[in-house]
Amino acid sequence: MKKALLLFITGALFSCSPIYMVSKSEFQQIPKGTKKIVIQTEMADDSLFTIISKSFSREGWVVKSDKGSMQISAEPKSVGSGTALKPFVFIEDKKAYYSGEWGLDQKGQLMMQSMVRANTVAFEPIAFERSGITKNDVAFQGLLLLAKKIPGELTYSK
């Protein structure tokens, strides 16, 4: 019940028209329910790890990495529309698997507190809804923009 109320209020507060952080045609090509972005490269895994870590850092993300397990994550950061993104990347066999979680950024928290007098800091796994008006879709597009900085063939995975 509380989650449904949260989704209803955040949807009503922030937008009734789609938010496109990528082109509309690119947005429409993303399959509904997508949870991961996969980048296939010709780079060695170590090089891919370094390039992705540096790419995150250049964009102002606070990076946490574990080269032994080939995992990169970052502290949550606002990607707009009251949405915070917490990205995760796993690297294996010349592929980078991007996934993440979304939550409310500071602006979103303030709006939520003013409407329902509740402080919500929980993060939810990202699953693309393809409506363009949800926090999920905003966070997924933010994740896509990060993934597109890495040269290679981009595909989606559920």
Rank of each mutant, 00 (worst) to 15 (best):
Ser131Asn: 15
Lys86Asp: 00
Lys35Gln: 13
Glu26Thr: 11
Asp137Val: 01
Phe128Leu: 08
Gly108Glu: 08
Phe123Gly: 06
Leu104His: 00
Thr34Gly: 06
Gln109Leu: 14
Pro76Tyr: 08
Phe88Leu: 14
Leu154Pro: 03
Ser157Cys: 12
Leu5Ala: 12
Glu26Gln: 12
Leu144Thr: 09
Glu153Lys: 11
Leu144Asp: 04
Gln109Pro: 04
Thr34Met: 01
Gly132Val: 05
Ile9Gln: 11
Gly11Ala: 02
Glu42Cys: 04
Trp102Leu: 06
Ala44His: 03
Arg117His: 12
Glu42Thr: 11
Glu59Asn: 08
Pro76Ile: 05
Thr134Tyr: 02
Phe128Gly: 09
Asp45Ala: 04
Lys36Met: 09
Lys67Glu: 12
Pro87Asp: 06
Glu101Pro: 04
Glu59Met: 10
Leu104Cys: 03
Thr50Cys: 04
Glu153His: 04
Gly142Tyr: 06
Gly11Gln: 03
Ile52Val: 07
Trp61Phe: 08
Leu146Gly: 05
Pro18Leu: 02
Ser53Pro: 03
Tyr20Ser: 13
Ile126Pro: 00
Ile126Thr: 01
Ser81Glu: 04
Tyr156Ile: 10
Val116Glu: 11
Glu26Cys: 04
Val38Met: 01
Met115Glu: 14
Ser81Val: 01
Lys3Trp: 06
Arg58Trp: 10
Ser69Lys: 12
Tyr98Gly: 05
Ile9Leu: 14
Pro76Gly: 09
Gly60Glu: 04
Ser114Tyr: 09
Leu143Thr: 09
Val63Cys: 04
Phe90Gly: 14
Ser73Trp: 02
Arg58Phe: 12
Phe27Ala: 00
Glu42Phe: 03
Met112Pro: 01
Thr10Lys: 07
Met43Glu: 13
Thr83His: 06
Gln106Thr: 10
Glu59Trp: 03
Gln141His: 05
Lys135Gly: 02
Val62Gly: 10
Ala96Trp: 01
Glu75Trp: 11
Met112Asn: 07
Lys135Trp: 00
Lys94Arg: 13
Gln40Thr: 07
Leu145His: 07
Lys2Ile: 13
Thr10Arg: 10
Lys77Tyr: 10
Leu104Thr: 03
Ala96Phe: 01
Ser15Val: 00
Glu59Cys: 05
Ile19Leu: 09
Phe49Glu: 12
Ala147Tyr: 02
Ser23Trp: 01
Ile52Asn: 05
